[in-house]
Nucleic acid binder design. Structure first.
Lengths: 282, 282
DNA sequence: CGAATAGTGTCTATAAGACAATATTAG
DNA sequence: CTAATATTGTCTTATAGACACTATTCG
């Protein structure tokens, strides 16, 4: 019928008017989770501008090109937004990805939210991301924000966040809890070296339930590449003595087989009557 | 600092220039999977227009408002694109969602692909969707396509699809295989009534591996709400006799606990050296 | 020693995988 | 009957959960 990629395609591209096909704006937002003082926390910022001025929301912003007119990849844009608020981008002004990598921050795409009316200005879809971070320094407010804090997620969910960011946060929690079951990402909440007890604490904090120590240890050690021993011992943690713990580093494995399953997940087996949460995109 | 949602927010919105924040276009694409003649197939269309004219790709198109200027939700837009190519929208011209629902087609968001340069016209991000469908009638080419076919996925992956649709298709296959493990979505590939052997066939087709019948049946029946018996028997399938099979309908459960795990997944446990596929967003 | 924290052993009920056996139907 | 398809039973091995026990360190 036609040669593909012919020279008339070049002519077509030269005459193309991109303005006719951009009725929708794109933002990139990020739900960054960390554990502080035994509580699961999310990074929130207070909006300095309209709309929703003064309200809290997840860090993010419009997807825009750099000075040369080239666009970043979506996860890079998300990392840049996170770096902007956590002050980790100081040594990498372009985008904080490298700085975040050295901090072993995990970033993945969560989903795209495009419910009509979620933004009062115009039709805006948000490509939401999810980050797991070890305990980072206190955040600093970025240029478009009045403040930035790590807030426990249960408090954040009770807040009235701007846009549909409460939905995004709820989806992020669902995803985070599920990911701990079948990946090794729990280590992303910890510093480079940690003890098995601290790793168990990550699961208990994120899932909000106690685990049995022997079973947990057995599963961790039965998964090759989950953790590998480091040549150090943890100095005592309490004030009244106690055996010192072996320290470990994250191994090369990324998938847990078999998974470490939470009680909540196991109980879904019997819960056939109530429909589980649908995909949270609106 | 300021009352939130004050009247000056209304003034701000009135003066807002939306053109300044829309440098990126949004498309919605859909990887629709079905099983035909024992093979996993994907719906492909041949492009009628530039760019990539004459090449094959997944159904999709720009996210645009309707005549009243209101935008559809993302999954509704994806369903409409699927209906446009499969001819299922005939009784629902606005968007084929209702027609697809009666056909029990499952649609979920797969992920958003935004690698720089993935579209030669301008910066375009694609919100990719995944659909599971029972054996549908042959597709009919839509207004912007020269042809539409159900193609076996192994052949489709060998094709040079337009844009980055080969990446999207690969991600769709990964997701589909994983979803069969822990959800009841295998039934979405079958008509309303089916036998256990046919259900097992769905798993074997999608995973490309044989399962042991007694173990499979036990797992299916051990999961409450996975299938429920229908009051019919399947007429004989072969030509030389044989016991007639009990027929079943999909039950109310959506999550499989414990999951039905493929050999491939189980073998990932020992494969600690090779990094598994990263998240496929570019 | 006793208290506190870290780590291991063991026992039992359940589940998985493999294989054999039984049931139903057409010719 | 035999062949073909559907369905169930059984046996062995592996795993999960619970609990008790041992190990190390400090005051």
């Amino acid at each position: 019928m036609d040669t593909q990629h012919g020279s008339d395609e070049a002519a077509f591209l030269a005459a193309y008017d991109s303005r006719a096909y951009t009725p929708t704006a794109v933002t990139v937002d990020i739900a960054a989770l960390t554990i502080r003082a035994g509580r699961l926390c999310v990074l929130l910022v207070q909006r300095a501008n309209h709309p929703f001025r003064g309200m809290w929301c997840l860090p993010g912003g419009f997807l825009v090109p750099d000075e040369q007119g080239s666009f970043p990849a979506l996860d890079v844009a998300a990392a840049a937004r996170l770096a902007l608020e956590t002050g980790l981008a100081l040594d990498d002004a372009a985008h904080g990805t490298a700085a975040l990598r050295t901090q072993r921050v995990h970033i993945e795409q969560l989903g795209t939210f495009g419910a009509p009316g979620r933004d009062p200005r115009m039709h805006v879809i948000s490509v939401a991301h999810l980050a797991f971070a070890p305990d980072l320094p206190d955040p600093v407010a970025g240029p478009d924000t009045l403040a930035a804090v790590w807030l426990p997620v249960d408090e954040a969910l009770a807040f009235d966040l701007a846009f549909d960011h409460t939905d995004i946060l709820a989806a992020a929690l669902d995803r985070a809890r599920a990911k701990l079951e079948y990946t090794t990402l729990a280590t992303a909440f910890l510093p480079a070296e940690f003890t098995i007890a601290e790793l168990q604490g990550v699961y208990e904090t994120v899932w909000g339930e106690r685990l049995v120590t022997p079973g947990f240890r057995r599963k961790v050690h039965a998964t090759p590449g989950f953790v590998e021993p480091a040549n150090e011992m943890r100095p005592r943690r309490g004030d009244k003595g106690g055996r010192r713990a072996q320290m470990y580093r994250a191994g090369a494995a990324t998938l847990l087989m078999p998974p470490i399953i939470s009680d909540e997940t196991r109980q879904r087996a019997g819960a056939t009557t109530d429909e589980p949460r649908q995909d949270p995109r609106a």
